[in-house]
């Protein structure tokens, strides 16, 4: 097994951990962190597999690095947006978790005027 393949396997493990965390954790910040771990895992897979197999000379292909860089930028923006939303959500509701859909459905039907005024339109 080459070192590259090892990276890729490491990526798979990270990815699985991230996914597990994402599903199991309910705190929004933890969910977000889990997403980032998942992302890192995938970037590792991308780089590891690419260097191992196809493409040009092994180890010489610059494209994966570029891809991962772009991917990181995307992930950072997504994280930033999520943080803004979570902060605002916390500010408005004082909560750090999303309610289950049943509960939120019930809340939607309540007509509390404060949140309805704009939300209705």
């Amino acid at each position: 097994m080459s070192a590259h393949l090892l990276y890729a396997f490491g990526g798979v493990v990270l990815c699985g951990m991230g996914l597990g965390g994402f599903i199991l954790l309910s705190h929004l910040l933890r969910k977000l962190l889990a997403f980032n771990i998942m992302g890192s895992g995938i970037f590792l897979i991308l780089v590891g597999l690419a260097q191992h197999g196809g493409g040009a000379e092994p180890g010489m292909d610059p494209v994966p690095q570029a891809l991962v860089l772009t991917g990181i930028v995307v992930a950072v923006s997504a994280t930033a947006l999520a943080l803004v939303l979570i902060r605002r959500y916390y500010y408005l509701t004082g909560q750090t978790v999303l309610e289950s859909s049943a509960e939120s459905g019930r809340r939607n039907n309540d007509d509390d005027p404060g949140s309805r005024k704009d939300g209705a339109l």
């Binding site: 890729a8 995938i42 897979i45 991308l46 597999l49 690419a50 196809g54 040009a56 292909d61």
Partner: peptide
Amino acid sequence: ALVYGEFG
């Protein structure tokens, strides 16, 4: 990533 790993 898997596709790229396969075909580059």
